[in-house]
């Protein structure tokens, strides 16, 4: 080959867009597929989890069917199982928790998002409430046994003494109770409500507030008539998310609810929740039907929290869309 030929060839190689690069191509495609596989496995985990729990609950579902939901009898020795007391305990304690935590959480969100306080007080305050979420719930439970219940007991006694004519306070308190569970759950879910609500309030455009203030409304009138309605879907989302947490919380509840299966209208009476019975009995369950009944309970809890969380996520999404 002559020199110009070689030069031309060299130039062509240098400018070629179609140069194959098998090693890199393989690396890139392999990597892309790897990432996809991992991502799909993460999503698949939820399906796997649902399937396994459903499958293991199957024997109990076959045995008890929907009577399981209404039956009050839970007797391991006789192998008869009913979920009603646990469902009742979970629902009532979570509702109590919301009743306590929503006003408090909202107050924290308002105080830390409005300019009542200088910024250097406001943000540490918000962080401090957030910190509750970082404390392992078993430690909150420990505190519940040794600090909260002794403090709560005089109040429970007072309620029994003076308001016993109300069915809710009609039994003599012994310490651990549905009320104690509600209070401790409120503490555990408080950060969920206050943190998300605060973010929601901070996301409300400033112009809305200024418009209201410039029409002569006071701060609280603005909060109640403008800001809270505008952020309603976000706050409801936060509340439902907190409900999801309360329904699934195990340790703190188990340690103060009293773990006594039975449905009693009185809040001063010990009770039992789905999570508590799972925590207490799973490790000792030997009978296949017993395990099945516990799996059935787990399935009920899983489905309830799944629905609640789905609604919560959708609510928060709706709010985010509305704001943007």
């Amino acid at each position: 080959m002559t020199n110009p030929d070689r030069a031309k060839q060299y130039l062509e190689v240098e400018h070629n867009l179609f140069q194959a690069d098998p090693k890199n191509l393989l690396l890139e495609q392999g990597f892309t597929w790897l990432v996809r596989i991992f991502a799909f496995s993460t999503a698949g985990l939820l399906l796997w989890l649902s399937w396994i729990i459903f499958q293991d609950a199957e024997p109990a579902i076959a045995q008890f069917g929907s009577d399981f939901l209404l039956s009050q009898n839970w007797n391991v020795g006789e192998l008869s199982f009913g979920a009603a007391p646990f469902i009742y305990g979970t629902v009532v304690s979570s509702t109590l928790a919301l009743l306590i935590a929503v006003p408090i959480g909202l107050a924290v969100a308002i105080v830390t998002s409005e300019n009542f306080l200088p910024v250097w007080v406001r943000s540490p305050l918000a962080t401090l409430v957030e910190l509750i979420a970082a404390i392992p719930s078993v430690i909150v439970g420990l505190w519940g046994i040794y600090v909260m219940i002794p403090v709560l007991q005089p109040l429970q006694l007072w309620l029994y003494k003076h308001l016993a004519w109300i069915p809710l306070f009609s039994t003599e308190p012994s310490g651990p109770s549905m009320l104690a569970a509600g209070v401790i759950l409120a503490i555990v879910i408080l950060p969920t409500i206050s943190v998300i609500s605060r973010d929601v309030l901070l996301a409300i455009p400033l112009e809305l507030r200024n418009a209201s203030m410039s029409l002569g409304a006071t701060r609280w009138e603005t909060i109640f008539k403008i800001i809270l309605p505008a952020s309603a879907s976000g706050i409801v989302g936060a509340t439902i998310l907190a409900l999801g947490r309360a329904l699934g919380e195990t340790m703190a509840v188990t340690m103060v609810i009293g773990n006594s299966a039975g449905i009693n209208i009185s809040l001063l009476e010990p009770a039992y929740s789905i999570t508590s019975v799972l925590a207490n009995e799973f490790a000792e369950a030997l009978e296949k039907l017993h395990i099945g009944a516990l799996m059935y309970l787990a399935l009920i809890l899983f489905v309830i929290t799944l629905i609640v969380n789905l609604i919560a996520v959708l609510m928060v999404n709706i709010f985010t869309k509305k704001i943007n």
Binding site: L49, T250, T275, A298, T305
Partner: peptide, 23 residues
């Protein structure tokens, strides 16, 4: 879809994860 499932997975009660691992 995957993001949504991951968010939901993030809110699964911890005891349910325990039940799953048990199974």
């Amino acid at each position: 879809g995957i993001r949504f499932i991951t968010v939901i997975l993030n809110s699964v009660p911890s005891i349910i994860a325990g039940v799953f691992a048990y199974a």
